[in-house]
Nucleic acid binder design. Structure first.
Length: 417
RNA sequence: CGGGCUGUAGUAUAACGGUAGUAUUCGUGCUUUGGGAGCACGCGGCCUGGGUUCAAUUCCCAGCAGCCCGACCA
């Protein structure tokens, strides 16, 4: 999938840790740190190590596939934004922005990548002239910087995080609404492909828009949101705006409403013409009339999605990655240090590599079997392949999410993977 | 930004108003290899500033940092 899909564990940049950092309480922070996926530079500021970056890239790739499928065009916008962008919409003093002194020693005159509605509205204004140019949708995957008063829960709330943001441009509210539904479907697909079940939740717009918006929530106890969700039809409202409470009847189907904790991994906003008005983003319609473009914006937090997956998929031993976002497909483990086993491991590693299987090869010398098994459980790669004297000429296969072990030859394994 | 808790080696921890101990990691050597192996030797540490004191890693204050709760937010 990437340029290098086969890695020797003896050469891996990171190592596993026996102990979790003492202060971390959230499962995702503990396991991702112990497994060597991420490194915390500051509270809410993480570096992604090779293992973690592979996961993130897989999530990014799934997102790209679904965004492209609904006509989104990937681009990359500037991260440094002149003050005029946010002052144009009254958001310069909102207070969650990192301001910088770029080019001005006396006062901040820029801010760094908080969100891009203003930036893309201005860009669009210079290319959109006619109704024939619309609709249009563009997205990017870029780091966002938010002044978080309280970063928390590992990857779930950071000051710096990778986000996919999609912006769409339409001739009418009606056209926006149609696209909005399309994006909602694409979002459900994205999270499903990441192994997660997303709940479409009615919510407020915050600093982005006055209209109601929708969040994609994943049920999890560490979640900081509470949603009122129908057990039957899954209609859901964020408790912030909901008049529903546990025990109420669902307004859609009459089922029972429950209040549950959830993590917001994505959201979609109908923006109307707020940003087009601020940046004079207009088009000429069929009758020659000038009108403001109707916009929508749609976000997904990549790191947060990764953290959420860990919160949802783990056991007492470590992470149990959903197959589509696992850093590798297979974890090949060679147990005996005897030359015969070494040679065999190398051969199998080569063959897996040729067959295009993403594999992490635990070729470490002098590391006991128990330690290798524990590391494999912690890292959470879907298929564990073990070779040792005991397996003779075959390979023992075990899925991370099951205790069943089977021994088979390489051909069968290649079919299985 | 308010409240609480915590800062000791790379990591996790212990004790102590006077010489900082253990485990693990790391390095060297040997023995080991199916669920975090064994022996030996070695490297490595008290967040910062101020105060109290003959003496502070220890007590007090402040700062900074981290975690948790609240407010706020993808």
């Amino acid at each position: 999938m990437f340029y290098n899909d086969c890695v020797r564990q003896s050469e891996l940049f990171s190592k596993t840790r026996r102990e979790a950092p003492k202060d971390e309480e959230s499962v995702n922070a503990k396991l991702l740190t112990r497994g060597g996926f991420v490194y915390k530079n500051s509270a809410g500021v993480y570096s992604f190590l090779p293992l973690g970056w592979r996961v993130l890239k897989k999530i990014a790739d799934i997102i790209r596939g679904e965004m492209d499928a609904i006509g989104g065009q990937e681009m990359l916008m500037a991260a440094l934004h002149d003050k005029r962008y946010l002052t144009a919409t009254g958001r310069w003093d909102v207070g969650v922005v990192y301001k910088v002194f770029a080019g001005n020693e006396d006062e901040p005159s820029f801010n760094i990548s908080w969100t891009h509605e203003e930036v893309i509205a201005e860009i669009a204004a210079s290319y959109v002239n006619s109704y024939q140019d619309l609709p249009l949708a563009a997205y990017q995957i870029q780091t966002k910087f938010r002044h978080e008063p309280r970063a928390k829960s590992g990857l779930l709330r950071g000051r710096e995080f990778l986000m996919k943001d999609l912006y769409s441009f339409h001739v009418s509210e009606n056209d926006l609404n149609k696209y909005y539904q399309k994006v909602a479907k694409a979002y459900h697909k994205i999270f499903k492909r990441c192994g997660l079940k997303s709940i479409y939740t009615l919510a407020a717009g915050g600093e982005f828009t006055v209209s109601n918006t929708h969040e994609f929530q994943i049920l999890a106890d560490v979640g900081e949101d509470t949603i009122c969700v129908c057990e039957k039809c899954e209609y859901a409202e964020n408790k912030e705006i909901s008049k529903l409470k546990t025990g109420d009847k669902c307004p859609k189907c009459g089922g029972a409403v429950m209040e549950k904790r959830a993590i917001e991994v994505g959201n979609i906003f109908p923006l109307g013409t707020k940003y087009s008005e601020a940046f004079n983003l207009r088009f000429t319609d069929e009758r020659g009339e000038k009108k403001y473009v109707v916009m929508g914006s749609y976000g997904i937090g990549l790191g947060r999605t990764m953290g959420t997956a860990v919160e949802v998929f783990h056991d007492g031993r470590g992470i149990v990655w959903p197959e589509n976002i696992a850093p590798f497909k297979a974890h090949l483990i060679s147990i005996n240090r005897k030359q015969k086993t070494e040679d065999r491991g190398q051969k199998i590693y080569d063959k897996l590599q040729k067959a295009g299987v993403e594999v992490l090869y635990d070729d470490r010398e002098g590391v006991s079997a128990g330690e290798k098994f524990n590391d494999a459980d912690l890292i959470g790669i879907p298929y564990r392949l073990v070779i040792s004297d005991k397996t003779k000429n075959e390979i023992e296969v075990k899925r991370r999410d099951s205790d069943e072990m089977r021994t088979m030859n390489l051909e069968k394994i290649l079919k299985l993977l």
